[in-house]
Each structure stands twice: as C-alpha cells, then as structure tokens.
Computed example of a mutant assay.
Amino acid sequence: MTSPAVTLRGVSAAHGATRDRPLDLDIVPGSRVWISGPSGVGKTSLLYVIGAMTLAQRGAVTVGGVAVSSSRVADQVRRDHVGFVLQDAQLVEHWTVERNLATMAGYDNAPQALERLESWGVPVEGRHPRSLSGGERQRIVTAGALAKGASVIVTDEPTSSLDETSRDAVIEAFRDAADAGAAVVVSSHDSAWSAWATQHVRLGRTDG
C-alpha cells in the first residue's frame, strides 16, 4: 500500500468551510487533486495548509512523512518536499528570470525550467519580471515549480491568466508531473481541471 504524500486528520484552516467542518484527506504520490468551490469558501486557505505555508488551526497535517507541528518544521517541509505556483506569481522584480528560476528550482534544475519555457513559447533570456505579462509570469513560476522535482506541488489558480492553448499545455505538464510520482494539488474555479483530476475536493459555501 502506498504511503500518502499528504495526510490531513481533523484539519481546520483559518478561513472558509473547513473552519467549522474539519477535513480528513489522504493524498498519495501520483495523485491529481482538484480543490473547487465558490469564492470565499477557503480553497486557498486549505491549499496553504496542504503545502505547509500556514499551520492548521486544528488537527494534524503530515507532508512527506513529517508532522507539520510548528513554523520551524513547516519551513523545512516546504524546502524539502513542496513546490509552489501561487496565484500572485511571486518573482523578485530586480532579478533576471534566469536567476528567479535558479532560486525556485535550484541551479542544477534551472536549465530544465528554461527548456520548458522555450517549448511554451515564453522568451526569457535577459528579461526581468517587470517586462512580463501576467500569463508569462504564471508560466515561469509553473516551470520553476515543476523543475524543482518536489514530491508535492501545490498550485493556486495556475491558469487564470492563460489562453486556452497555454492553459492546456500547463494542465498537461501537471499531468506529467503526477505521472512521474508527484502529488499535485490544484485550487481553481476552472472546470477544465475536472477531466485532469483523479481526486476532487469540493468545498461548500460557508455560513458567513
């Protein structure tokens, strides 16, 4: 039996549906998990708990076999096990794209990210984030997260700024990452993820 990459037991996030309705969840390696639900329901809050970006308000979270019991442990778990694609594509504006990718993915893995971006038609050589469109920034962060080779990849609306062709290429890239053994967790309003997902977590409306 495959050990889960992520385990939640009685977990409540700071905001949204799980605050009052704690969640149990097992995410095994190779899973493609889609978190859906209306705005304000706590999709991003849950995603941040799964990726050890924030601590759960209640319950037990294990990522990569490590209990996320403190901020110090969470920092280590993020470094060792998790890749991120956040809705606000966070890049250091005064660094080149190449340096940003090296920081996200590791210097040895940066060429792989650059190769992926070239295949997606995103020119980056010598460019800085301030010269990029929103869609280009999203794909750069996605390429960096994928190249890191993390066992858990958490993504928040990774295709919100993309046209249909670019969106489909990114969805396929996340499918490939899961096929290679990563647990990929996507929070998104976009129903295009439905056919991609092997596991669906739908959060209901909050009571206010």
Rank of each mutant, 00 (worst) to 15 (best):
I153Y: 01
Q87W: 11
P22T: 02
K43E: 06
V85W: 02
V33H: 05
K43S: 06
Y107P: 12
A74P: 09
D163W: 01
V97M: 00
K43F: 06
V66W: 07
D24Q: 08
S12A: 13
E115H: 14
W196L: 03
T2Q: 10
G42Y: 01
W34F: 12
G83M: 02
R21G: 10
A180R: 14
H189Y: 08
T54C: 11
Q76I: 10
A150L: 03
L146D: 12
A67F: 06
T142A: 15
G64M: 03
A178G: 10
W120Q: 10
A14R: 13
S161L: 07
S151E: 15
V122C: 06
T62G: 08
A195V: 10
R167N: 09
A74Q: 09
S71C: 10
L162F: 04
S133V: 00
S36Y: 05
G40C: 11
R78Y: 07
G181K: 06
F84M: 11
E136T: 01
T103Y: 09
R137Q: 06
A89G: 08
G106N: 05
P111Q: 10
L101N: 06
D20W: 14
A113C: 05
G37L: 05
A52E: 08
E115D: 15
V11W: 00
H15F: 13
G51R: 02
V201P: 01
R137T: 03
D80Y: 09
L91K: 01
S3Q: 15
S166G: 13
E125H: 15
A67V: 13
F174T: 03
R79S: 14
S187M: 09
A102W: 00
V201L: 13
A178M: 10
A147E: 07
G65V: 06
